[in-house]
Amino acid sequence: MTFAPVPYSQLNARQRENFNFHKVAARLADYGFHSLRLTDDWQGADFIACHIDGQTFLKVQLKARLFLDKKYVGKDIHIAFLQGGDCFLYPHDELLGLVLDNGALDAESERWRVHGQRHWRNPPAWGMAFLAKFKF
């Protein structure tokens, strides 16, 4: 049998989500986490990451980029995404607090106001500074 990598661009949306889950889960395994994929978004999470300490459990939502959504507020959700060779896993509400405090999300932000979401394909400088402590 010969193995050949499949370009990410050739994957459909569901295949990309599966790919991203396995990449993030593999990275988390290096830090003592076992990841359990959920069949539906339980309390907003795509998967649960359980640490070997037996006390740390993270509800994780997979995204393709830096992302905020009103439906995750107050649910103790962590957002995971891949960018290049880097993996990021950050607490949603901590990012929301930073964005609100810095005025980067206000009444002028139509996507937030109308759809309850805001995302950045390429995080701005303040976003990269925030993400630096959540890169693994």
Rank of each mutant, 00 (worst) to 15 (best):
M1C: 09
F3C: 08
F3K: 12
P5W: 08
V6F: 03
V6A: 07
P7C: 06
Y8R: 15
A13K: 13
A13N: 06
R14F: 01
R14N: 13
R14A: 10
R14P: 03
Q15S: 12
Q15T: 03
R16I: 04
E17T: 14
F19S: 10
F19G: 04
F19I: 01
F21H: 04
H22I: 03
H22S: 07
K23T: 02
A25M: 08
A26Q: 12
A26D: 07
R27W: 05
R27D: 03
R27Q: 05
L28K: 08
L28H: 04
A29H: 14
Y31W: 13
Y31V: 10
G32I: 03
G32S: 04
H34I: 11
L36Q: 00
R37M: 04
R37P: 01
D40N: 14
D41G: 05
W42E: 15
Q43N: 08
G44C: 13
G44E: 02
A45I: 01
A45R: 01
A45P: 00
D46F: 13
D46W: 08
D46Y: 04
F47H: 08
C50H: 13
H51D: 00
H51A: 14
I52P: 00
D53I: 06
D53Q: 05
D53H: 08
D53L: 06
T56D: 07
T56F: 08
T56P: 06
F57E: 02
F57I: 13
F57K: 05
K59A: 15
K59W: 07
K59P: 01
Q61M: 03
L62R: 10
K63L: 02
K63T: 14
K63C: 10
A64F: 07
R65W: 02
F67T: 11
F67K: 06
D69C: 05
Y72L: 15
Y72R: 07
V73P: 10
V73N: 04
G74A: 13
K75M: 15
D76S: 07
D76V: 01
I77S: 10
H78M: 14
I79A: 05
A80S: 10
Q83D: 11
G85S: 15
D86H: 14
C87D: 02
L89G: 08
L89W: 04
L89F: 05
Y90V: 07
Y90A: 08
P91C: 06
H92C: 08
H92E: 02
D93F: 02
E94I: 04
E94P: 00
E94H: 05
L95K: 12
L95R: 05
L96H: 09
G97A: 13
G97M: 12
L98G: 04
L98S: 02
V99R: 03
L100V: 10
L100N: 11
D101T: 11
N102L: 11
N102I: 03
G103M: 10
A104T: 08
L105M: 12
L105F: 03
E110L: 11
R111Y: 00
R113E: 14
R113H: 10
V114Y: 12
V114K: 12
H115L: 07
Q117G: 03
Q117M: 11
R118Q: 15
R118P: 02
H119M: 09
R121T: 15
R121Y: 05
P123A: 11
P123G: 11
P123I: 09
P124N: 11
A125Q: 13
W126F: 15
G127I: 06
A129W: 02
A129H: 12
F130E: 13
L131T: 11
L131A: 07
K133G: 01
F134N: 10
